[in-house]
């Protein structure tokens, strides 16, 4: 299936998840960071950021949350995506636009990338969402809980994103 089609489907799933599950202050439910891997690896950072910006804005509008919060958290993920791809895999992957596959690069590297992108998203999201109203301990707990849940969720949707 076309990766961009998968991307838009995941975007709808994200909106539905946000509306149905209504995450409380203790955890953040998101698959937006892992969705950044749907973009072809040879896409420029600017292009990734533009897609991330409008996608996150779409989610913000239809999920009933704070408008701009997902944008604020997802754009840095898109900005750093190519950098992490080069660091976790190699330059050739980005330069040649090779496909990202679990079999070729191994589960640990892919998992590490997902955890890092998700952690970056959650860090911005949770800090701005709390707005200095919650203790550092509570924010840390929310972060860890969300990171575990979102990583599991990302692993569930990962087969549709990666090359078989």
């Amino acid at each position: 299936m076309n990766k961009m089609l998968v991307y838009f489907l995941l975007l709808l799933i994200q909106v539905i998840l946000s509306q149905l599950i209504q995450p409380g202050p203790d955890w953040v439910l998101t698959i937006l960071p892992v969705m950044m891997l749907c973009f072809p690896t040879d896409w420029s950072t600017l292009r990734c950021m533009l897609f991330a910006f409008f996608s996150a804005l779409f989610v913000d509008f239809f999920s009933g949350g704070i408008i701009g919060l997902n944008v604020l958290a997802l754009v840095p993920v898109a900005w750093s995506r190519n950098f992490f791809l080069r660091k976790f895999f190699n330059d050739e992957l980005v330069d040649r636009g090779a496909a990202l596959s679990m079999r070729k690069w191994g589960f640990p590297a892919v998992l590490g990338l997902i955890v890092l992108l998700t952690a970056l998203f959650l860090l911005v999201y949770i800090v701005v969402d709390a707005s200095d109203q919650r203790s550092l301990l509570l924010e840390g707990r929310t972060f860890l809980l969300s990171l575990v849940c979102d990583t599991v969720l990302a692993l569930l949707v990962l087969p549709s994103i990666l090359e078989r």
């Binding site: 420029s44 533009l50 704070i66 408008i67 701009g68 919060l69 604020l72 754009v75 840095p76 707005s131």
Partner: peptide, 22 residues
């Protein structure tokens, strides 16, 4: 890219500023 990143983040901050009291 850096300018676009800053622009998008500022836009996000402005949106948050106008939509969330806290």
């Amino acid at each position: 890219t850096a300018a676009a990143f800053i622009l998008m983040e500022v836009a996000a901050l402005v949106m948050i500023y106008h939509n969330a009291e806290l």
